[in-house]
Design a protein around this nucleic acid. Structure first.
Lengths: 238, 238
DNA sequence: CGCGGCATTGAGATGCGTCAAATGCGGTGG
DNA sequence: CCACCGCATTTGACGCATCTCAATGCCGCG
């Protein structure tokens, strides 16, 4: 492992890694980072591939380096709901064992940095700051889940779509947030969007064309251009 | 503060407190429990009273000793969604500052055991086991939120009602779970139930009478008797 | 060129919301 | 004790948003 004076000896792969400052790895000392990186490995997942099946024990922990991961719940008859989206540099994997009944799947092509369970757990014991980082992410996920419950339970289809577009716009490229008009690619298929919003694909499609007809957005396949952010905000209803 | 040899010197008020073994106080040493109890105070809240307004900084932390607390989200136009229910001995209050945009309200009469923010934060630093307890509760709340997202997004009105009744039945009196027929009082008004399920009060009422007509439950005001647990489970759809 | 997957569009059905009225129940005061 | 009131709940009639089912369009790939 190369030790570069300018990066305080951080592993090369970690030097430019987003997870190192904004993600959980930011909580680690350089020496701990070196240790973790020794047993970490990068994986590229194809769109649609399953990270871990429902109810299975997760084989390890990961950072999302790029792409979007969806967390799903499914009823016995097949109806599905996406209960969370993870973007880079989110942390994936549940501490203290006992994975909940979740499907974890790549919504786009995804790049992961994974660690074995044992290494992570050893570090967790050594390093309270790491546990706190993960705790903070969990609190954020709880906030997001509850915010989405409001959307699922109380918003109309058009409000849901607008809310979703704004969510993606914010995550797609925060630096581009002040470009006008804002444009980005949807990381989800119509079917995934429907599963996220508790709608059908037909309703999703119709609402998108309606927003287009009203001059609020442009849509072509997955490409979205927000023509009027102001009006999109007002449709979203908050 | 009385020190009783049979309880290892735990404060009298804590001796029979549910939060001491099942709640977060279970993580504390006796000496810490004594310290915490010195600055703790019990409050009785009337039904409908607000614990802390949306966006306000919570003035402290609490354990729910009895009753049900609802966590709510509200849209600018007044539409409301209940995003969580807290039963005894759940912990109330968000560590690490920055309360999320939540309304916290007593759904029934509620008994709280509250601590000032400063005491709690000092203990949190001293006692990693306490932080871990709260972390574990947060993980549980996240699971519950996501489970409820599936209910909100993908279940029909009758499935929602059945799911809700089973949820309350499990929380009302776990020891009574094997009595047949199971009976309990709903801790929520029709309006609260509607806000929890993302429905209107009329739909809630109609679905309850339909379940009654189908011989699955008996309802009179808030009293519920589950005549056929098996059928209720099958209506809930999971 | 033709096939398969994804998305759009249309027509019809329906579950749930809306609005309005009736019912029941507890509390208060005469 | 009873009459009255206010509030929560139930019930009914109707409309509409969304779902369902089906057809069509679009595009990449063999």
């Amino acid at each position: 492992m190369r030790n570069d004076i300018h990066t305080n000896g951080a592993p090369v792969l970690c030097i430019s890694c987003e997870a190192r400052d904004r993600g959980v790895c930011g909580a680690l000392e350089t020496s701990q980072l070196v240790e973790l990186s020794k047993s970490s490995s990068r994986h590229r997942l194809a769109q649609g591939s399953e990270v871990v099946g429902e109810c299975e024990t997760i084989e390890g922990y990961s950072n999302v380096l790029s792409g979007v991961v969806k967390l799903t719940k499914t009823l016995p008859d097949g109806r599905q709901q996406i209960v969370g989206l993870q973007f880079a540099p989110d942390f994936l994997g549940r501490p203290f064992g006992k994975e909940s009944d979740l499907g974890i799947e790549a919504a786009t092509e995804v790049l992961l940095c994974s660690f074995p369970r044992s290494t992570m757990e050893r570090l967790l014991e050594q390093c309270p700051a790491l546990e706190k980082r993960i705790f903070l992410q969990t609190l954020r996920e709880l906030d997001e889940a509850r915010q989405w419950m409001l959307t699922l339970g109380r918003k109309s289809a058009s409000e849901k779509i607008a809310t979703f577009l704004l969510l993606i716009a914010r995550n797609a490229d925060p630096t581009a947030a002040y470009q006008h008009p804002i444009c980005f690619d949807l990381p989800l298929s119509r079917s995934d969007i429907a599963d996220y919003l508790g709608l059908t694909i037909e309703t999703v499609s119709r609402q998108l064309t309606k927003l287009h007809a009203d001059g609020v957005i442009d849509v072509h396949n997955r490409r979205v251009v927000i023509s009027s952010l102001e009006r999109l905000l007002s449709v979203a209803g908050n």
